[in-house]
Lab assay of single mutants.
Amino acid sequence: DKHFVVALYDYTAMNDRDLQMLKGEKLQVLKGTGDWWLARSLVTGREGYVPSNFVARVE
């Protein structure tokens, strides 16, 4: 069951495990537990961690 989110804010990666994203960017959540979610950008195809409070679910 795939679940998708949209970035509510720009996020600048703090290290090489984070995923940089721009407000409005759509992401697929690969692992969504805790404060940091592993996601893949549908724009760039890159994977990394994003802060869960920076994204909102897309139905």
Rank of each mutant, 00 (worst) to 15 (best):
L27I: 05
E47K: 09
A7T: 03
G48W: 05
W37M: 12
K23H: 03
W36T: 11
H3N: 14
L27K: 00
K2F: 09
A39Y: 00
N15H: 13
Y49N: 08
R40I: 04
W36S: 11
V58P: 09
T12G: 09
A39P: 00
L19E: 02
F54D: 00
M21L: 12
L19N: 00
A56D: 09
R46W: 03
R57F: 07
G32C: 15
N15V: 06
M14A: 14
Y9N: 15
T12P: 12
L22E: 06
K2G: 06
V55F: 04
Y11S: 05
A7I: 04
Q28Y: 05
D35M: 11
K26D: 06
Y11K: 09
N15D: 12
L19D: 03
H3T: 14
M21C: 07
E25D: 11
L42T: 13
G45C: 05
D16W: 08
A39L: 15
E25Q: 05
T44C: 01
A39M: 13
M21P: 05
V58A: 11
S52N: 09
R57S: 14
Y49S: 03
A13Y: 04
G32W: 08
V29S: 00
R17L: 09
L27W: 05
N53I: 05
A13E: 07
L22A: 14
L38S: 02
G34F: 00
L42V: 10
L19P: 06
L30S: 04
D10P: 08
Y49V: 07
S52V: 09
F4G: 03
P51C: 05
R40Y: 01
G32R: 14
K31H: 12
G34Q: 06
Y49C: 05
L42K: 03
T33A: 12
T33W: 06
A56V: 08
G34C: 03
W37R: 04
Y11G: 03
T12F: 12
M14W: 07
D10L: 03
V43A: 13
S52G: 09
V43I: 11
D18T: 11
E47S: 09
K23M: 05
G24M: 01
G48A: 02
Y11N: 04
V6Q: 13
V5F: 10
L19R: 01
H3G: 11
G24N: 02
A56N: 10
V5S: 09
D10F: 05
L27C: 05
V43L: 11
D18W: 02
L27E: 00
E25Y: 02
R17M: 11
L38P: 01
E47R: 09
W36C: 10
W36N: 09
T33Q: 13
G32V: 08
L22G: 11
V58F: 09
W36Q: 13
S52W: 07
Q28E: 14
A39W: 02
L19F: 13
R40D: 04
L42P: 06
R17E: 11
D10K: 05
L42F: 02
L22P: 00
G24K: 05
K2E: 07
P51N: 07
V29D: 03
D16H: 12
D1Y: 10
V43R: 15
A7D: 03
T12Q: 14
Q28K: 10
V43H: 10
K26E: 13
V29Y: 05
Q20P: 14
E25W: 02
L22S: 15
P51L: 02
N15S: 13
A56L: 07
K2P: 10
P51M: 03
P51A: 02
T44M: 01
T33S: 13
F4L: 13
K2I: 10
K23Q: 08
P51H: 04
N15M: 07
G32T: 15
F54M: 14
Y49W: 11
L30K: 05
D18P: 05
L8E: 06
L19Q: 00
G45H: 06
F4I: 13
L30M: 06
D18R: 10
L38K: 12
A13C: 08
M21W: 00
L30Q: 06
F4V: 10
G24W: 01
G48T: 02
G32F: 09
D18I: 00
L42M: 11
M14C: 13
E25V: 04
E47L: 07
M14E: 14
V29H: 02
G34S: 07
Y9K: 15
G45I: 03
S41Q: 04
D1E: 15
V55W: 03
V29M: 01
M14H: 13
L22T: 12
E25A: 01
R57V: 09
V55D: 04
T44I: 04
T12N: 15
G45Q: 08
G48E: 01
N53Y: 05
A39F: 01
T44G: 03
L19W: 04
L22M: 15
E47N: 02
K31D: 14
W37K: 09
N53E: 12
A13K: 08
G32M: 15
G34K: 06
K26H: 09
G48H: 09
E25H: 05
S52D: 04
